[in-house]
Amino acid sequence: MKLSSIRKKQIVAVSGLAMVGFLLAHLSGNLLLFKGPEAYNAYADFLHSLGPILWVLRLGLIGAVLLHIIFTVLIVKENRQARKDRYAVVQDHRNERSLAVKLMPYTGFVILAYIIIHLLDFTFADKTTIINGVDYGLYGLVITTLRNPLHAAAYIIAMFSIGFHLSHAFQSVVQTFGLSSEKSRPKLMLASLVFGLGVALAYSSIPLYVVATFR
């Protein structure tokens, strides 16, 4: 089946939105860390108790990640080919920093690297963390991992990469589906920036808290 450039963009947008959905759910779960080990581990146990449902969600997420990567790689390749001869001088015609859009492939790449590290840290790790004879489980694993300031810093950088990615992406999705207008666009751009920054800050609160509290 032939897909137009617009359809390809829509696949990027929908898969991106699916990941945003995950991102918000994941955030709300992880903020339980502030409530302490019981609440946090109970949430993890609840997720694992979902069994097959959890696997459906996981497969959906994996599918979204794969689709997003495949189609963005395709799109970016086509875009580069569309201007092989570069300009010697080129200015931003909008006279405002549109750095986020230029950096989409790079913030995307940082996110991908982060996803791999993140899965190795927590998903594919042994989740018994015995401290002074008590097993703190997943909560303990998160604390011992993020207590390392370098590790925490890497997480924070990754979270701001996601935030930056989303600061362009959020309003971009609305335009890709043709739902923005001259009137709403400036507001959407602002909302997009606030959303991206909000996600970055909310997630970053976790490593910051761990580093500050468990030295």
């Binding site: 569309a82 859009v101 989409m104």
Partner: peptide
């Protein structure tokens, strides 16, 4: 062989 739109809005400007 034109590229895809990334919604950078440079065109409008």
């Amino acid at each position: 062989g034109f590229g895809n739109c990334s919604n950078a809005y440079q065109c409008e400007a």
